[in-house]
Simulated assay, not measured.
Amino acid sequence: MAKTRLYIARHGKTMFNTIGRAQGWSDTPLTDEGERGIRQLGLGLKDAGTTFKAAFSSDSGRTIQTMGIILKECGQESIPYQRDKRIREWCFGSLDGGYDGELFFGVLPRTKAFEGGKSINEVTYPELAESIVEVDTAGWAEPWEVLSQRIWDGFTAIAKKIDAEGGGNVIIVSHGMTINTFLWLIDNNREKISLDNGSVSVVDFADGKFTIEKIGDMSYRHRGQEILENEKA
């Protein structure tokens, strides 16, 4: 049986990413720069000879748009593609669409999890989730137990499906905090890092267990950028 390997990409840069707004369950399309970055990713994956058995994304417009570009540039538009709402971004509730600075450096630092002057990087994902629930006046934000379970279930279902079909590579497009949460659930001793748009994290699945191989790899995008620049020359 072939190895089951998940190539998990963060979607391309969007309008809200560009102007520093918390996107969450709200949605904006990729900018021209964002589309170009994902073209680079697709070309880099193709140049590396990476082929996929299937494709999965969240049901958000920005991940669907990203996947379309990747598969086109890879020349793999005919592979099975499914959307799964379980791998959506975190929901910021009533603060969805607000400015990042206001949310992460204004409102949330006044919650219990930040007592004692903790910084955003010192707060754990479970604490951060509960902080968002604490300040969400709409009641839409998910408690950590619900949030973490849906993310874990989403990625696990994909891995098990591919594994049951004999293994292989799968391309997944999801969101920065969702990907980071999944990686943290696999290994909660690792440091939090910011994942760039179009970065790829690679996770293997075998004997019911996940193993992290790469986090936030930008080499495919860099190779794709070289290819595009050579085409112009």
Rank of each mutant, 00 (worst) to 15 (best):
S60T: 06
T4I: 11
F52G: 00
K118Q: 07
K209D: 11
D96A: 11
G224Y: 06
N189V: 05
K209G: 01
G42H: 11
D153V: 02
R150N: 01
Y125R: 12
N197A: 07
T4D: 02
G176T: 06
V135E: 10
P29G: 10
D59C: 10
I132R: 00
Q225C: 10
K46R: 15
Y7S: 09
G101S: 10
G166W: 11
A233M: 14
D136L: 03
E191L: 13
L45T: 09
G139V: 00
I79P: 03
L183E: 11
T156R: 14
I69L: 09
D136K: 07
T211A: 10
I193S: 12
E231K: 15
R86S: 13
L43K: 15
Y7K: 11
L6W: 06
P126V: 03
F155G: 03
I158P: 04
K72I: 07
L30H: 07
T137L: 05
Q225W: 12
M177I: 12
F114I: 02
G139I: 01
D196K: 14
I158G: 04
S131L: 05
R88G: 07
D100M: 06
G42N: 09
L185M: 13
G42T: 05
V170T: 07
T156L: 13
Q23R: 08
D59H: 01
A9M: 11
G166T: 02
I120F: 14
M177Q: 14
S60Q: 12
E231G: 12
D136T: 10
I227S: 10
R36G: 00
C74V: 11
E130T: 02
D84I: 06
D217H: 02
L95Q: 05
E229Y: 10
D187P: 09
R221S: 12
T66K: 01
V173A: 08
K214M: 12
Q76G: 08
G167M: 09
I151D: 01
E35Q: 15
I151F: 09
E145M: 04
K46F: 06
T111Q: 04
V135I: 11
I19Y: 12
I8G: 07
L45I: 01
C74I: 08
E231I: 14
Q65F: 01
D163P: 04
F56Y: 15
F16I: 05
I151T: 09
L128I: 02
R223A: 12
D163H: 14
I172Y: 03
V107P: 00
G98T: 13
P126R: 05
M1K: 13
N189T: 15
F16C: 04
L6R: 09
I162N: 06
S57C: 07
T181D: 09
A129Y: 00
T156C: 02
G93I: 02
R62H: 07
V123F: 00
F92K: 07
A206K: 14
G116M: 06
